[in-house]
Every structure is written in structure tokens, then in C-alpha cells.
Computed example of a mutant assay.
Amino acid sequence: MKGCKQRKACRNNQAQNTQVSGGGKQCNADQPSSVCSCCCVGDGCNIGEPPCIEEVINVTCPVQATFYHGEMQCSDGNNEGSVCKFVCTEGAFSVYPDGVNANQCMGGGVWNISMPCCARPCPPYFLYDMVTLYHTTNVQLFDIFSLGAIIRTSAIAIGPEATQSASFYYSDKIDEDSVVYFNDYNYNRSLGIRLYDERTRPNNSANGKVNTGAAIQWALRNMFNESRGARRNVPKVIVVAIDSDSDDDVTSASQAARDAGVLIYVFNIPPAGGALDQDQMLSITNDVDHIFTFDPERRNFFSNVGSFTTDVISHFCSDPCNHAFHN
């Protein structure tokens, strides 16, 4: 019968001898050249005939990520049996998925469930940067877009970890006096609305031209810059609010914006007894569900705003853990 061996010798024995030992914790006397089934621990532990000491193997689980916007407290780090509890400590944040307030490191070296995150309700907490491009040939209709801007921003949270909006007016060129950049109001909702009301007024060129393609290109180059308050790694949205077809090419500029990851919508008011060019608007959005046609009498105003919000939810609210900065 082979006695218990120190760990290194025992491991070598097991590697060299393929005959399996029995179910006990000591080497088996009735099985010649049996493999030692346990290893003793400590210097000199194999002197004399000590009982076989079962080898202790430390089982650990992967280190869990930082628990942003809250606190994670674990009973024993990431070792087997450790229970980690999660509590969100900031503002409107709560644990998501709901009810997942703890997890445990299991014997197989895996957590029994994935760690949750701290999330906020979406809506009203959408995380994106939005730029609205305005043009109207019929200045009497401009208030529809103006009111729409206020309602769209008031229905969502404005803040450094929520939505922020910027805007400008254009015709054949950009009216640079109308521009409201993101950092002109630094998340102050009332200041942002006041700046919009002061700056964004119909100011059409004498030639009557409308260059929506150029406006989209200008927004892409000038509005989504960090120097203007745009945020790195935050989704971008463009809303084109128009009541006229464009006189320039909209396809290449819109494609460039989409290639940059920008989501584009069109809010349009058709001329009396007519309609805007649907193919052109589809070239801008590349999605018929991103085109919203407003009645000049505002009869479908709130339903359109509701449909717009529903579509935004489909893009930004699928995973609540992605609706806040985690750094």
C-alpha cells in the first residue's frame, strides 16, 4: 500500500500511473500500484503513517466588472461561495433586471447569474445627442415645428447622462445666427428653449432655394463635434423638419450620416393639396417609419409625436444597461 504523498509527488504519481484508485480518500491496499487519490499538505506530512489529507483546491469565479452608479459588496471576493450584493445609490437608478440584487460564486467557478446593472427608466431617460434642422417656406407653419421642439424636449430628460438637443435654420445655406449648439445651454432646459425661441426664426434666401443635403452635411461636420458639446460614444440623431422638397442632392449627405451611425428622421408638412417627394424623404431616412407627415391643422400632431417617441424607444430602450454612462 502506498502512503500519502506530498502534493508534487502525488501529482507525478497520478500522471504516470493510469490505474484508478478506489473511492476512498487513501491509497487502496487491495489494488497494486494504485494511484494515490489524495495529496497531503505541508513539509514532512508524509513521515510515518498520517491520515490522508484531502487536497484543498481554491475555486474562484471571474472578477466582476465595476458596478457603476451603485455599490457591490461581496462576502469573500470572487472565491467559491462568495455572495455579492448590489445596491444602486444614484438618482433615478435602480437595479436591472428588477429583483436581481445578488449573485453567488459556485463550485464550478461561475457566477450563478450575471451581475445586474444600475439603469433608469427609458423613457424618459434616452441617451443620445439630437440635432434638428429647420426649414419652412410657409412661415405661418413654423410654429408647428417650434411647438414640436418644445414638446419633444419636455417629454424626455435633459442632462449629462440623458438627452441633449441642438438646432439651426437653413434655406439655400445655413443661417448661422440661428444655431444653438449643445454647449450653448449646458443641459439647462429653460435656457435651451429660450435660445431656440430667440435664434430659430424663418430666414429664407431671396432665391427661394432649399438645400437639405447641404444642411445635413453641415450638421454632420459642425454640430456633432466635442468642441460644440457633443458627447463621445453617444448615439446621434438628426431630425429634418421641412415643408419643401430639397433643391440639392440629399442622398450622398444622408448616406454619409448613416454611415457615421446617425439615425435620421423627417418631420414634414405637405403643401396645400399636395405632398412632398416621398422618394426624396426616403433617401434621407432610409426607413419609411422615420417619416412623419404633420397636418397643417395639427390634427395629428400629438399622434405623430407619440409615434416618433415609440420609434425612438425601439432604438434606444432595448437594453436599459446601455442607457447611461458606465465609466
Rank of each mutant, 00 (worst) to 15 (best):
D98L: 08
D279N: 11
G3E: 02
A157G: 02
D247P: 02
Y169N: 03
G48E: 08
Y265H: 11
E90Q: 15
G148W: 00
N79R: 09
L133K: 04
Y125M: 03
T163H: 05
I269H: 01
G229E: 07
E226H: 15
Y196T: 12
Q280I: 01
D43Y: 09
F325L: 15
C4H: 03
N13Q: 14
P50I: 10
Q6R: 10
V266T: 04
Q31N: 08
S114D: 15
T18K: 14
G77S: 09
G107Q: 10
V262Q: 01
M72Q: 13
Q104H: 13
V288S: 10
I216L: 12
S94E: 13
R299N: 12
V266I: 11
C10P: 01
T212Q: 00
F86I: 01
P116L: 06
G159I: 09
N183P: 06
A324D: 03
Y128N: 06
I158W: 08
Y265M: 15
S314A: 15
Y187G: 02
S303V: 13
G213E: 01
I264M: 06
V262E: 00
A157V: 04
P51N: 12
Y265I: 10
T89R: 06
L141I: 09
P97T: 05
D243K: 06
N79K: 09
S318E: 08
R11F: 10
I269E: 03
Y187E: 11
R232D: 07
Q280N: 05
Y170Q: 07
V305K: 04
Y196D: 04
N186A: 07
A65D: 11
M281H: 03
N13W: 10
